[in-house]
C-alpha cells in the first residue's frame, strides 16, 4: 500500500471510531459538541503512559480507553441535567476546557505537544475500526439499541414502556467516552505525536457533522458519514479552499433536502434482503421512505 493510501486509511479508521463515539450518544438524542475533548484525553493518556511510564501500546490503549470512559461517565451526570442547545453548549465548553487545560499543562508538554514512543501500524487501526463497527451494529440490533432509539424519539414514553432512560444515557456517554479515547490513543500511537491545538473545536464540529450527515437512526450512518467526508475531499478534483466551499454547500443542501441524514431506518429496511421479494400478501403496504 502506498504511503498516501495508507495515510487515508489510517485517518478513515480513526474518524470512523471517533464518529461511532459521537453516534452512540446522538442515537439516544444527546448531541456532543465536545468530542475533541474526549479524544484528547485518550490521546494524551496514551502519549503520557507511553513516553513517561514507558508502557507498550497494548497496555496504554486499554488504560487510555478506561481514562476517557471514566471521564465520560463522570461528566455525564452534570451534562445530562441540560438539554437541547444547553447540552450542545455544555459539551462544547467541556471540549474547549480540556484543550485549554492541555495547552497549559507542563506535564503534557503544553503548547509544544508530546512525542509518543510506541508506533502501531495501519493494520491494527483497521482491526480496531472493524471491531468497533461490529460492536455498534451488534448494540443497535439489540433491545438496548431499540431503547436508545426510542429515547431519541420520546423520553417520556420510553420511561413508561419500562426503559431506564437515565441509565441508558449515562451508559452511552461512558461508551462514547471510551470509543473517543480509543480513537485518540490510536491517533497518538500511529502518528507518534500529539499536540493540544489539533484537538480544537473544529474537530468536534467535523465529527458531529459526520454523524448527523450520515444519519443517527442506524449504525450505518457514521460509517457512510465518515466514508463520505474522508473520501469526498480526496476524490474532489478541485483544490484548496474550493473543496471546503463545495463541502459547505453539500452540508447546507443535505439539511434542506434530507435533514434526517443520508441513511435512515426506512432506507435500510427497503434495501434489506428480507424485502427484496414481496414476503406475503401483507407487503401490500409499501415501505415508504418518508422523513
Amino acid at each position: 500500500m502506498s504511503g498516501y493510501a495508507s495515510g487515508i486509511v489510517a485517518i478513515l479508521c480513526i474518524n470512523l471510531i471517533f464518529a461511532y463515539a459521537i453516534f452512540v450518544t446522538a442515537a439516544a438524542g444527546q448531541l456532543n459538541l465536545g468530542g475533541a475533548g474526549f479524544q484528547a484525553i485518550g490521546a494524551y493518556a496514551a502519549a503520557w503512559l507511553s513516553s513517561s511510564a514507558h508502557m507498550p501500546a497494548n497496555v496504554t490503549i486499554p488504560l487510555a480507553i478506561l481514562a476517557s470512559a471514566l471521564v465520560g461517565f463522570v461528566i455525564s451526570f452534570p451534562v445530562l441535567r441540560t438539554r437541547g442547545v444547553y447540552m450542545v453548549l455544555a459539551t462544547f465548553a467541556f471540549g474547549q476546557f480540556v484543550s485549554g487545560f492541555l495547552l497549559r499543562s507542563p506535564t503534557f508538554g503544553g503548547a509544544i505537544g508530546m512525542v509518543v514512543a510506541d508506533y502501531i501500524g495501519v493494520g491494527a487501526l483497521v482491526i480496531c475500526a472493524v471491531v468497533t463497527t461490529l460492536l455498534v451494529f451488534f448494540l443497535m440490533a439489540s433491545r438496548l439499541g431499540l431503547a436508545i432509539r426510542s429515547i431519541h424519539d420520546d423520553e417520556l414514553v420510553s420511561t413508561i414502556m419500562g426503559v431506564n432512560v437515565r441509565a441508558v444515557q449515562v451508559a452511552m456517554f461512558t461508551l462514547g467516552g471510551a470509543l473517543a479515547g480509543l480513537s485518540g490513543a490510536l491517533y497518538a500511537h500511529h502518528f507518534s505525536f500529539v499536540e493540544a491545538q489539533y484537538f480544537n473545536s473544529l474537530l468536534s464540529i467535523y465529527v458531529l457533522l459526520f454523524v448527523l450527515i450520515g444519519g443517527t437512526q442506524t449504525a450505518w450512518g457514521p460509517l457512510v458519514g465518515s466514508l463520505f467526508f474522508t473520501l469526498l475531499p480526496e476524490l474532489m478534483r478541485v483544490g484548496g479552499s474550493w473543496r471546503y466551499v463545495v463541502f459547505g454547500v453539500v452540508i447546507v443542501l443535505m439539511m434542506v433536502l434530507r435533514p434526517q441524514g443520508i441513511v435512515t431506518r426506512a432506507l435500510v429496511a427497503r434495501l434489506s434482503p428480507r424485502n427484496w421479494w414481496p414476503a406475503s400478501s401483507r407487503a401490500a403496504t409499501r415501505v415508504s421512505d418518508a422523513g
Partner: peptide, 26 residues
C-alpha cells in the same frame, strides 16, 4: 419532534461557516 431536531439549523449554519470563510480565503 425528536431530541436532535434543533441540530438541523445548527448544522446548516456550520455549512455556511465553511462556505463564507473559504470564499473569503479564495
Amino acid at each position: 419532534g425528536d431530541a436532535t431536531e434543533h441540530a438541523i439549523p445548527l448544522v446548516s449554519s456550520l455549512g455556511f461557516l465553511l462556505i463564507f470563510e473559504h470564499l473569503v480565503l479564495i
